[in-house]
Design a protein around this nucleic acid. Sequence first.
RNA 1: GCGGUCGUAGCUCAACUGGUUAGAGCACUCGCCUGUCACGUGAGAGGUUGCCGGUUCAAGUCCGGUCGACCGCGCCA
Length: 447
Amino acid sequence: MRTYVKDLKNFIGETVSISGWIDVRRDQGKMIFLDFRDMTGVVQGVILPNYTDTLEVGKTLRKEFAVKVEGKVNKRPERNIKEGILNGELELEILDIKVLAEAAPLPFDISLSGYNLELTTELDNRAIVLRQPKIQAVFKVEETVIDSFREFMKENLFFEFQAPSMVPATAEGGAEVFQIDYFGKKAFLSQSPQLYKQIVMSAFERCFTVNKVFRAEPSSTTRHLTEIVSLDAEMAFIDSWTDVRDMAENTVKHILKRVEDKNSEHLKLLGVELPIMIDKTPTLSLREVQQKIFDKFGRDVRGEKDTNAQDEREICEIIKEETGSDFVFIYGYPTKKKPFYVYPNPDEPEYNEGMDLICRGVEWLSGGRRINESKQLEEHVKLWNMDPSKVKMFLEAFKYGVPPEGGFAFGAERITMQLLGLKNVREACMFPRDMNRIDERLTDEGY
RNA sequence: GCGGUCGUAGCUCAACUGGUUAGAGCACUCGCCUGUCACGUGAGAGGUUGCCGGUUCAAGUCCGGUCGACCGCGCCA
């Protein structure tokens, strides 16, 4: 019967069997200390001087050997108690060790304190690095982000569906897409489930999807990947785009709360403070944002059709100072600058009711109200120079009574990156794909 | 795609304005060590300084090219 390392405190005085990896070996000559790590934690084991056979085995053990250990759970002598760590008050008196698998010498230090790699080394050695506690912490936080998104959506009666990854034509026209050979014909990898979630919304009222999307942007930056996890939501029967904003805000709030609750140990390990979302997240129009940047920094971006990276950093700085919020919603972009389905403000049709949520200078989420009227939608398709036959199924959905609606989407990797203050989105993605890497580095000669 | 910075041991880094045999920590190998917890300690092994060419009495260091990395911008959600 296997005992998990985290439960050892319930077995003081008893003999147990644990399985795990050797974290560290500290060889004292006549006695050997071994730290064992399983998925639940770490415990110190000791081979005492009178176990001569086991000591022989102990001499041959190295880091990361997978082992099965029989031992007696003892309270530590008073002077050897380590405060504040798991199993600091106990240790395992090792009776027998069976090697399940030997490990080659590690190419670098993966211990908690010794780990220090360049990003490219980290990615070139992903399989090994995944054993490092801080790296594991990042992905456990990401797991919570995705779980809690799903959880909040379901609490609010959103229906989860699976969006397709292979699509017939570019959905929005904007971003670059990957073309695939589809039985000798052209198909594409989906860059967004946008049109599908609107179709599903038209029948299910509220829906969401967690799925992979692909972008062939030739963008080599700290926040672009070619394959990302998109968290998408869409809801019908809204009164205003602000209903969508509120839902987005509450979703993010829920995610922050869950991460705080479930990952406190991981956050501590990574030494990060979560961004602060105040009760009512400040909401500004694009023009208000540009005016504020002008007033504060004297940099005139008034009249620009969108925010750039510097604008986003500066407006976050201003809002943080004014309100304490790390988040800000920006709405009211030039209609022509956004996709065809975004709803134009009826009072001022050259501006739309699309919105972005910016946090600490980086975009987290985008969304807004969509056009729900069939005729207006068809007009926009023409105005955007799109071929109506390419979005036939989409347009059809809107012919049969679709109420005012909207939605939002965000990237799981970017959120994780931002939550944890990571400098590069690749750190928030277990197997990142970018222009120069698909697990292996891509070169002109190979692959 | 453009610009900046960089490329030295398995990993992380050092080597002042060009100047002896390119160093350190960790990891690795062989010893010593009965309370360590990043154990300590003695010794050893490990390098075509990314690659190609050039300048110079002399190049890790300077120049040109090339490949690669990181950062910023552009593009993009």
